[in-house]
């Protein structure tokens, strides 16, 4: 029931924002800043994630007339965030040039070491991040959305502007490609 109440709140806030109520829009800004920022960061915006989020909220407000509400406000906003992040990466690459790409500013995927974890596990994780970053951007995007951001298939489709079937096939392909890059894990007892 609580989920339904929140959904209803969200629909009301969107409806009022669409009628020009900036107070109602602020409710949405407060609720979705953190997920939008996390998505922007992990999709590669790094230290520019805050700028991406602000731009996305301004654009989302001006495009509210196109919002249909099928899968909620979050994936709809994340689609704008993903698009802004792509624009950012494109202009950053143009600025930096291809040779500099590997050394671009801050790490877009900062890894926080867990002190309780073994050095081996931390090392494996770091390696996983490196291989993820080395993937083709289209493969990386679906994996980031589906598993790192924990979005559903439908939400991922909306965020990346892809048909659902494409999300499914691209996810499978990306997983295979990522696995090919990883050393075979030793299975205990084998």
């Amino acid at each position: 029931m609580r989920g339904a109440a929140i959904e209803n709140d969200e629909a009301t806030a969107v409806a009022r924002a669409r009628a020009g109520d900036l107070d109602a829009y602020e409710v949405l800004v407060v609720r979705f800043t953190a997920p939008a920022h996390r998505a922007a960061t992990l999709l590669g915006a790094g230290a520019d994630a805050d700028d991406v989020v602000q731009e996305a909220f301004v654009k989302a407000y001006r495009q509210l007339g196109r919002y249909r509400g099928e899968s909620g406000f979050r994936p709809w906003l994340l689609a704008i965030v993903a698009n802004e992040t792509r624009n950012l990466l494109r202009s950053r690459n143009r600025r930096a040039g291809l040779l500099m790409r590997a050394a671009v500013r801050e790490d877009p995927m900062p890894l926080e070491p867990d002190p309780a974890e073994s050095a081996e596990a931390t090392e494996r994780r770091r390696f996983l991040v490196e291989q993820l970053r080395a993937l083709d951007v289209r493969d990386r995007e679906v994996l980031v959305c589906r598993y790192l951001l924990d979005l559903s298939e439908a939400e991922t489709a909306m965020t990346l502007g892809l048909p659902k079937g494409t999300v499914k096939s691209r996810t499978a392909r990306a997983l295979t490609r990522l696995r090919d890059r990883l050393p075979v894990k030793e299975v205990p007892g084998a």
């Binding site: 800004v29 994630a49 989020v53 602000q54 890894l111 790192l148 951001l149």
Partner: peptide
Amino acid sequence: LIGELRELGRALAVPQPVDQRNAVR
């Protein structure tokens, strides 16, 4: 592998986002 990726998602540290209310308004 999916399990590992989900774990990785939880382990990645994302800095605190900036409060966007005033700027957006």
